[in-house]
Design a protein around this nucleic acid. Structure first.
Ligand SMILES: Nc1ccn([C@H]2C[C@H](O)[C@@H](COP(=O)(O)OP(=O)(O)OP(=O)(O)O)O2)c(=O)n1
Ligand SMILES: [Mn+2]
Length: 970
DNA sequence: AAACGGCAAAC
DNA sequence: GTTTGCC
DNA sequence: GTTT
């Protein structure tokens, strides 16, 4: 999407070095530190009231500088208020905008409605983001008891304690720490099957070495004081003298590398020692009242509030006051304008504020307004990739011309602040976005009083209206107090509108959209609360039709449907107390819903049932590999077939998925603990369909899959290409390419002049890399990395992931996730990965680099991660070269990173697929909601980060049972 | 009939 | 921009 | 190749 980040790493390859390579510690990352210096300098200049040098240094530095400055300001809410508008940077917004030409902003026609929906059907999402934005250091003992509460409290939709207990069956409630699942990891004797997971879990959490956490607290407090200081500490890191001795890790002691605590504690959030964002206290106290609909006339008084709106009943998820007609339809602004039609908006001069709006939606709004001949006064575009922290310069507000200010902000102060005005002409109506939605929908101006901001005045007492609350007794009670008609109009109507849309879109589950901030998580720091009540788009002309459709879709009789409606019951579960969109039964049972997850749970149940996990958790036990396996012939033959298809697959064809599915099927069969004795039986196995079942049938009957014999495959090609592909950096294409060129052996390949550096390394260490790594060696290697990392910061935490964490008996490589409590800043993390890389390279532990992370100005200070991939080797004559992957991640992404890096790949793909089906997006940083995709499934916005701090959080959000790492062997 | 992971370096 | 390969 |  955007141009590749500027890497400052010179294109020199250390692979040009003579063999055996001793990996000259590459080039210091000069520009990174140059950058740090310049940032520090400009900060100091700013402190002295000078114009920062950076102002002359070009946009990127400027942005950086401003950001730093902003961060400092954030520590002082008051200062922040004053300054949040002064630091706008033309260059950022324009340059970003430039990368997204208008036509890209405009999605294809068929997406539109969707987008609009996204905009219209938003669900208040209380100030969850805030809670993510900074996190108190979790003290080990506290964490144990609060972990579950934490993840619960964050699981949307909000649920009551009652619901939660439903959702947290005792056996999944606990024990997500691997050192419990894998006792020896901690140096404990393996004795797993006996101890229940529950007793294990508390053990695990509390056994986190307290020293680390405590040290972290102190550190954190110091570090967070001043960005300058943190910059300085980075520089200090550069100057850190290189230690010379290389310690051979003790083979006796188990590495203490297991200290990563994959838990969090929201309750401790407020005492965040790091002093992160320093949000105004009103946003830090929790829980912020959620979903208040603006009592219409409260406080926009000065901004043209029409009479007659206050006192209207306001219900549920809508802030739109009801018309007396009980129709619930929006009220046209004045009678004289009430004839809808094109050109009806010609008298409107609309200023739409981009804050808190999805760029796609924003740009759609603009198009619609212009189509309807309205005048657009706000910013012309909002680009997809604009850094939400950069204050984009808004066009000045024309106090005379403007008729409406449309905003997603929740209070008038914020509006003024963002517009950089003292006051707003009372003639200008300040309205929420639903005003615009309805105005567009009905092609005529709506009555502004029905669309007031949700929190007109900061600090104004909020009416304790129940809305958007989880199905709880409380909700229930108050809900029932509402006149039924009102509730119908507001809630049920909303629900079936939304659901109908979902039906039309082919998915019931994907329609839940929420507020539309985009971009990376909590970057925003406005004082705004996000729980603006949402409004629903109402299409009177089609309501009846949709209702009928919904009734049919739900499979109930019209009478029953009517009854549900009358009695305010959830359409889905038919219970009272919540509505469909808040139905705790949502989503449907996973096993019915997602076949891929079926394979996961098959593996899980298998693992549990057999209770053999302890075998593979111990390094000294052969593990699953040697276990008696059922269906061996079937598996082996399917494997051959898969390999064949894998090799002959052509891009663009189905072969890819064929192979994937073969793999799934094979894995599913592998998880069985019984012999397949018939085709029908095989058909029941997840991911085994007609064709594979038939082959299995053949195998059972004849001992051989017929296809294998009639395959006109090129056996030599398969064999050779398989070898080629086992070279790191070589895939199917390259292998075929080489075979076609007549190359047949590794030595042939070694002669090639145009190998890339990964292929060179792959060849150089080919023999070693083919060998599996014992768990014991993984631990030794991890210890080396951990020690070095802790040299830099003693509170850094490391965790071995990959197949090791899944308890596999041996590993293809070493995968390590590194994080530092509370640290999200990419620059700091980069300093960590650089430190590890440099130190271990100079110790000759790292001998080659396969992929080194790059730092780029554009991404400065972003909460990003860094992946290092290289070749390492323990000291000693006989040690082999090993592939090592080190992932340094922001603290807040730790859970997502662990989930991703623990795998296995199938599990990841399944979970991502599931997320996707629900309109979410899962990656190694977290779970994002509100993702809009084009018709090819390509995402067109980032979505909002909603989970990722802990693994459990992600499982919770996806509403699937937590899977222990060893249960992720899909 | 339309899904099937996400990312980024390399091309 | 698309392809290739990786986790 | 399998599933919804
Ligand atoms: N196609 C893939 C491959 C890997 N991964 C993730 C999950 C893996 O667990 C993790 C590490 O990748 P590895 O290649 O190291 O795989 P494993 O550690 O699972 O197995 P091995 O024993 O081969 O290292 O990366 C993924 O998401 N998708
Ligand atoms: Mn691995």
């Amino acid at each position: 999407m955007s141009r590749p980040p500027k890497k400052f790493r010179p294109p020199v390859s250390i692979f040009d070095l003579p063999c055996p390579p001793t990996a000259a510690p590459p080039h210091d990352n000069k520009s990174f530190f140059t950058h740090l210096d310049s940032v520090q300098q400009s900060l100091e200049e700013e402190d002295e009231g000078k114009i920062p040098k950076a102002l002359e240094a070009g946009p990127e530095i400027l942005v950086e500088s401003l950001y730093k400055r902003r961060r400092r300001i954030q520590q002082d809410p008051e200062l922040e208020m004053q300054l949040s508008f002064t630091g706008s940077v033309e260059s950022t917004s324009s340059s970003h905008t430039g990368r997204h030409p208008p036509e890209q902003q405009k999605p294809p026609k068929n997406v539109r409605f969707n987008l609009e929906l996204n905009e219209v059907y938003e669900i208040p999402r209380s100030s969850k983001r805030r809670r993510h934005s900074s996190r108190a250091l979790t003290l080990p003992d506290a964490s144990t008891s609060t972990t579950t509460a934490t993840s619960r409290s964050r699981s949307p939709p909000p649920r009551t304690g009652e619901d939660e207990s439903e959702n947290y069956p005792p056996d999944t409630e606990e024990a997500d720490e691997d050192w419990d699942a894998i006792p020896h990891y901690r140096g404990l004797p393996a004795e797993p099957a006996s101890s229940s997971s529950s007793s294990n879990s508390s053990n695990g959490s509390t056994s986190t070495p307290p020293a680390l956490a405590v040290g972290g607290t102190n550190n954190r407090a110091r570090k967070s004081k001043e960005p300058i200081q943190s910059v300085a500490s980075k520089i200090g890191c550069r100057r850190k003298p290189t230690t010379t001795s290389f310690k051979i890790p003790s083979l006796q002691r188990s590495p203490s590398i297991v200290a990563l605590d994959d838990t969090s504690d929201d309750e401790l959030f407020l005492r965040d020692a790091r002093g992160t964002p320093a949000l105004p206290t009103s946003y830090r106290t929790d829980p912020p009242p959620r979903a208040r609909s603006a009592p219409a006339a409260t406080s926009l008084g000065s901004n043209r509030l029409s009479a007659g709106t206050s006192g209207r009943p306001l219900f549920a998820t809508s802030s739109r006051p009801l018309a007396e007609t009980s129709s619930g339809y929006p009220i046209p602004s004045t009678s004289k304008q009430s004839t809808p039609g094109p050109g009806r908006l010609a008298e409107l001069y609309i200023y739409v504020m981009p804050q808190n709006m999805d760029s796609v939606v924003f740009n759609l709004m603009r198009d619609r307004v212009q189509e309807l001949k309205g005048h657009w006064l706000g910013p012309k575009t909002k680009s997809l990739a604009t850094d939400p922290r950069a204050n984009t310069e808004l066009p000045a507000l024309d106090q005379e011309k403007t008729t409406h200010i449309v905003t997603s902000l929740t209070n008038i102060q914020a509006v003024k602040r963002h517009l950089n005005v003292e006051d707003i002409n009372p003639k200008i109506a300040v309205v929420n976005r639903e005003w615009l939605s309805d105005t567009i929908t009905y092609k005529r101006p709506m009555e502004p009083a029905s669309y007031t901001l949700s929190r007109p005045e900061i600090g104004a007492p909020l009416k304790p209206l129940q809305q958007d609350t989880p199905p709880s007794s409380q909700t229930h009670r108050s809900a029932e107090k509402q006149p039924a008609s009102a509730m119908m109009n507001n809630v049920h109507q909303l629900d079936f509108e939304v659901i109908m849309q979902g039906i039309q879109e082919g998915s019931l589950e994907d329609v839940e959209m929420s507020n539309t901030d985009e971009g990376e998580d909590e970057a925003k720091d406005d004082g705004e609360n996000k729980d603006e009540p949402h409004q629903e788009d109402i299409h009177p002309e089609s309501t009846a039709q949709r209702e009928a459709d919904l009734q049919r879709a739900l499979g109930v009789s019209p009478e029953a449907f009517d009854k549900l409606k009358r009695e305010n019951r959830c359409f889905k579960c038919q219970q009272v107390g919540h509505w469909m969109r808040r139905c705790p039964k949502r989503p449907l049972e996973i096993n019915q819903e997602d076949i891929l997850l079926q394979t996961i749970y098959a593996a899980r149940n298998e693992a549990k049932r057999r209770k053999t996990m302890h075998k593979c958790q111990s390094p000294h036990v052969a593990g699953m590999k040697d276990e008696p396996r059922y269906n061996k012939a079937i598996i082996d033959q399917l494997r051959v077939l898969m390999k064949h298809y894998d090799n002959i697959k052509h891009k663009g064809s189905n072969e890819n998925f064929k192979v994937i599915n073969y793999r799934r099927a094979i894995n599913a069969i592998q998880a069985l603990d019984y012999e397949l004795t018939s085709e029908e039986m095989a058909l029941k196995v997840p991911c085994v369909g007609k064709k594979i079942a038939k082959k299995i049938g053949e195998c059972i009957a004849l001992g051989r899959i017929k296809k294998l014999d009639h395959l006109n495959w090129d056996k030599d090609r398969l064999q050779v290409e398989t070898i080629f592909r086992s070279i790191y950096g070589v895939g199917a294409e390259k292998a075929t390419d080489w075979y076609d060129k007549g190359l047949r052996t590794l030595d042939d390949i070694r002669q090639l002049p145009d190998l890339n550096k990964n292929q060179i390394a792959g060849l150089r260490y080919y023999d070693d890399l083919q060998k599996r790594v014992t768990r014991a060696e993984v631990e030794q290697i991890a210890k080396v990395v951990e020690d070095i990392a802790k040299d830099l910061h003693p509170d850094i935490q490391c965790q071995v992931t990959g197949s090791y964490r899944r308890g596999q008996p041996d590993c293809g490589d070493i995968d390590i996730v590194v994080a530092r409590p509370e640290v999200d800043d990419g620059d700091e993390l980069f300093a960590i990965v650089e430190h590890i890389r440099r130190e271990l390279t100079s110790k000759r532990f790292l001998v080659d680099h396969l992929a080194e992370p790059g730092w780029s100005v554009e991404m400065a200070n972003q909460p990003r991660h860094f992946k290092y991939m290289g070749i390492c080797r323990l000291p000693g004559e006989n040690s082999l070269h090993r592939h090592i992957d080190i992932l340094v991640v922001p603290w807040k992404h730790l859970g997502a990173a662990l989930l991703y890096f623990t795998g296995n790949d199938i599990c990841n793909r399944s979970m991502r697929h599931l997320a996707r089906k629900r309109g979410l997006r899962l990656n190694d940083k977290g779970l994002y909601e509100n993702v809009i995709r084009d018709k090819h499934g390509k995402k067109i916005n980032e979505g909002q980060w909603v989970a990722g701090r802990t693994e459990r959080e992600i499982f919770d959000y996806l509403k699937i049972d937590y899977l222990e790492p060893f249960e992720r062997q899909c």
